Computed example of a mutant assay.
Amino acid sequence: MTRTLGRTGLSVSPIGFGAFKIGRNQGVKYPTPYELPDEKEVSRLLNAVLDLGCTLIDTAPAYGLSEARIGDAIGHRRGEIILSTKVGETFADGVSTYDFSEGGIRTSLERSLRKLRTDFLDVVLIHSSGDDLQILRETPAVEVLQQFKDRGVIGAIGMSGKTVEGASQALNWADVLMVEFNLNDTTHAEVIQAASDRDVAIFVKKGLASGKLAAEDSIRFVLGQSGVTSLILGGLNLDHFRENWRVALESRRP
C-alpha cells in the first residue's frame, strides 16, 4: 500500500524511515539516551526496513553520520528508495550551524549527493532554524532549490519548518511540506488541509512527540488524516519498526 506524493507523480510508503538516530545522539530531544549503532547494525537495520516495503528514507546533513551511512548501507539499492534530505542546517562537533546562502546550499547539496552515492535527490527540504518567514523572504534558499530542480538534480522541493505561517507561505512553491502533527499538537491541521487542496504532499514529523506518545494510537491518528502522505518514524529497534509498519498498513483514511 502506497500513497501518492502530491503532484510529483511518485508514490511512497505510509511510513518513512527517519534516519536521525543512525547518525546522531548529541543534542537530542528524545527522553531516553542511546548509543549510536555500528556500521554493521546500520546496514542490517536499513536493509531490513527496505525489505519490509518501506520506500521513503528521510535524512539530513544535521543528522550527523546519517547520509554517509545510508549511502554505504543501501546505496546499491538506490532504485528502491525515495530519498528525502535537507539543506540549511549542518551538525558537527556537537553544534548545529545554519547557512541559507546560495553558496551554502549548493555546497550542502553537492555534499549530500556524494555521501548518499547518488546523482539525484527525490526530495530536498529547507531545514528551518525556526525563522521560517525570514528564511523564505530574505534568503535565496527557495530560488537555489528551484534551480537544482530545473536542472533535474532534485525531483521535489519543500520545507521542514516550525511555524504555521511559514508552512502557509511555502504552499506557494513547495511540492512537499514536513510539519509537526500529533495527538497533542494539531496546530498544523489547517495547513495540512490547504496542502491537500493544492496537491502538496505532507510528511509528518514528531507524530509520536519524540517518543512521548503511544505508537499505535498515534500512528492511526496521523495516517487517518486525509491530507497526510507519510509519517516519518525513526528508531533503532527493528521489532518496533515492524510493529509500527503493521499498524500503518492497517490504518485507513476517512
Rank of each mutant, 00 (worst) to 15 (best):
I154M: 01
Y98G: 13
W173F: 14
I81G: 05
R114F: 10
Q169I: 05
V87E: 04
S108T: 10
P140E: 10
G152K: 14
F120A: 10
I70C: 13
F100N: 03
V153R: 07
L121E: 10
L183Y: 03
E80T: 02
S160G: 09
L177R: 08
T187C: 13
V87N: 01
T186M: 08
A167I: 04
S108N: 12
D72H: 13
R114Y: 04
L136Q: 14
A189D: 12
A167R: 04
W173C: 12
L183A: 03
S96N: 06
V123L: 14
F120R: 09
M159S: 03
N182C: 02
R151M: 15
T187Y: 12
D122P: 08
S129R: 14
L171Y: 09
L177A: 07
T107Y: 09
S129A: 15
L177Y: 06
F100T: 04
E110W: 01
L116N: 00
G130E: 00
K149L: 04
F100C: 05
T163Q: 06
M178R: 05
A156T: 00
R114S: 11
D150S: 14
V142T: 10
G166R: 04
G161W: 05
D122G: 13
D132Q: 14
S112N: 05
T139A: 09
K149C: 09
V176Q: 13
E102I: 07
D132T: 11
R151S: 15
S112Q: 00
H127F: 05
K162M: 14
A170S: 15
T186F: 00
V144D: 12
L125R: 13
G75M: 02
M159P: 00
A189G: 02
A92L: 12
I81A: 02
F181T: 03
Q146V: 10
